[in-house]
Nucleic acid binder design. Structure first.
Lengths: 352, 352
DNA sequence: TTGAAAGCGCTAACAG
DNA sequence: CTGTTAGCGCTTTCAA
């Protein structure tokens, strides 16, 4: 509840625009104007109003303002919420830009659950937010979301919904970047290269797998299913650990491995080292993401960096722009594909 | 904006409670009741209302409801926002419990900035949230926050403000847990034990330093300032890296080090290994937190676990309770101090 | 430049 | 059990 001030009988009462108006000797309309359009009132009026605001400790009530203005100045950020810290810098950047732009950030974790998606669809339809940012590989499948873009601007980060035009999309060229990572391995003299794909069925995971195949094909190398260690349920340590079992089970081992995410790479490396395999001595590893931990691991992980903070900033700025111009028709959406960057560290060895 | 339906002339219009009432042949009050207190209307009325809701695609407008009910069903979660992924599971747990309880989660990163604190104080005073959870070592110093607990319930996580009663507090016994960590080192035969404190001036960092000293004193060991490597600006890798310089500069090296956070420990270990120092062969390291990465590092980090998820759940449940009973006077606050747990892994060696 | 008045969509008294 | 009525606090025409 808003600020209160003592009543005549000592009972606390919330300070409203009425109180300010009375105190400043003007109408409520003038107080409202002095706040929203300071140029539209005389110098003297403005001073009187702001003095009254200070004296009363007035803060405009958000609900009343939203109801009247039909805008809540809030955005909904939807995350997968699998406990992955990949999104920490993204959320950080989003919060920064949105707050700067005068918007609050409501977060929601979809957890791949239908009921949670329905819940957040309802939040949107209740007019609780002016825009939506979906930061997840798994875009909500709820039918309710289909109607969302008609009501508030919505953007996608890190993955797109092919064939749609109503969202802004901010992602990277997962396929191209993965191919580049594998090309680097090839350039270092590796010929037998394995891949640990990400979460089965996800668009990003598929794209990265595609890039891996592209690079192999380009170089005239065979694509060997025995070297594609599927079964990841997520972009996490456990999936890397699981892949290590495939590695150990294999007679003819690869000299290098491309993991679809840093955490997968780290989990894999740890398991290999436990098994007495040296990295990059015996096998080289390259990751994807450039998470905080990549550089601090031993050996420091060579990886493809996704510009997470920059993507967050750009996506937020775009949504801000679209929300601002939402009243005059559907503002144009953007498709921004940022470049990844190979970060060479210590986990890949040059062959022969 | 809320759901819309085509008007007579095709223009989209938002569906209001009026539309539902008209369609169901009842008054708006009855619709409101059918939704909020289903038992207070006849079976037939309820059916008619829900049918009308379904047919129109009605979703109650959040702003109107908040304005009238003087409750937004939202909480503000304030994080430090230094990009630290320590808070990822905490935020996850909070979101889960709050959503379950029918509350939305608005996040804010204070970034130790005065202006941002003022901003969020204003959000609270604007009545935008029904409760506040401060998840940070640095509690807002803004005067505006002083008045907050009178208006909405507020809780603190991970650190307290000594001498205050108006907040619920969920934390761990940083001092006791740290002493326990150092006692473990002593029990393993270590006598010359160093400490890397956390962010200078923070309550938690001080407590952990205090615990370190306690354990040393208990064992009759001297407290040597040369073994307390101050200067951390944060609980991060960089601080561990920085401490490694002190280590290398020292002639008479310690056999064990207690780092005030896992990330500090990891940064320190990495720097030592780079310098050819073996862990735990040459020096043992123990951390604090039990972050996701502790177990996957090489060597896996022995550390004191803070029950982050559980703390998040409990804190959220407590705030939920307090918000529910906020109308009838100031509900009682809780002080919950959860136990930490020593997780023994590979980074500490048993001496001679 | 300012004020009066209407009303955003909903809930809560109060009658009936 | 249901309807009527008032009004939450604010912004925005419309007139003056």
């Amino acid at each position: 509840m808003p600020t209160r001030e003592a009543d005549a009988d000592g009972a606390p009462r919330t300070v409203t625009i009425q109180d300010v108006a009375r105190r400043a000797g003007v109408s409520t309309a003038t107080v409202s104007r002095a706040i929203a359009l300071p140029d539209r009132v005389t110098e003297a009026t403005r001073a009187a109003v702001f003095a009254a605001i200070r004296e009363t400790g007035y803060t405009p009530n958000a609900a009343a303002r939203s109801l009247r203005a039909k805008s809540t100045k809030m955005v909904l950020v939807l995350l997968p919420g699998i406990g992955n810290s990949f999104f920490t810098p993204v959320l950080n950047a989003l919060e920064e830009v949105f707050t700067e732009g005068g918007y609050g950030v409501l977060i929601g974790y979809t957890r791949q659950s239908r009921s949670r998606e329905t819940h957040y669809a309802r939040v949107i339809r209740a007019g609780q937010v002016d825009g939506v940012l979906v930061v997840t590989g798994n875009v909500p499948r709820d039918e309710e979301f289909v109607s969302v873009p008609d009501t508030v601007p919505m953007s996608l980060m890190f993955s797109e919904i092919p064939g749609t035009e109503q969202f802004s999309v901010f992602d990277v060229d997962n396929r191209g970047a993965s191919a580049e990572a594998v090309r680097y391995l090839i350039a270092q003299g590796h010929r037998r290269i394995a891949h640990i794909p990400g979460a089965e069925g996800g668009l990003e995971a598929n794209e990265r797998l595609g890039g891996y195949c592209d690079a192999l094909r380009e170089a005239g190398l065979p694509i060997d299913e025995a070297l594609i260690w599927r079964g990841a349920s997520n972009f996490d340590f456990a999936s890397g650990d699981r892949a290590a079992r495939d590695f150990f089970a294999l007679a003819d081992k690869p000299t290098a491995v491309f993991a679809a995410a840093d955490e997968i790479a780290l989990g894999f490396m740890r398991a290999l080292k436990n098994g007495g395999v040296s990295i990059p001595g015996d096998v080289s590893v390259i990751g994807f993401d450039d998470t905080e931990y990549a550089v601090h691991y031993d050996p420091a992980l060579t990886t493809m960096r996704q510009p997470r903070t920059e993507m967050g900033r750009l996506a937020a700025a775009d949504l801000l722009r679209r929300m601002a111009s939402a009243r005059d028709g559907s503002p144009s959406t953007s498709k921004v594909r940022l470049p990844c960057e190979l970060v060479v560290r210590e986990s890949v060895r040059r062959m022969g």
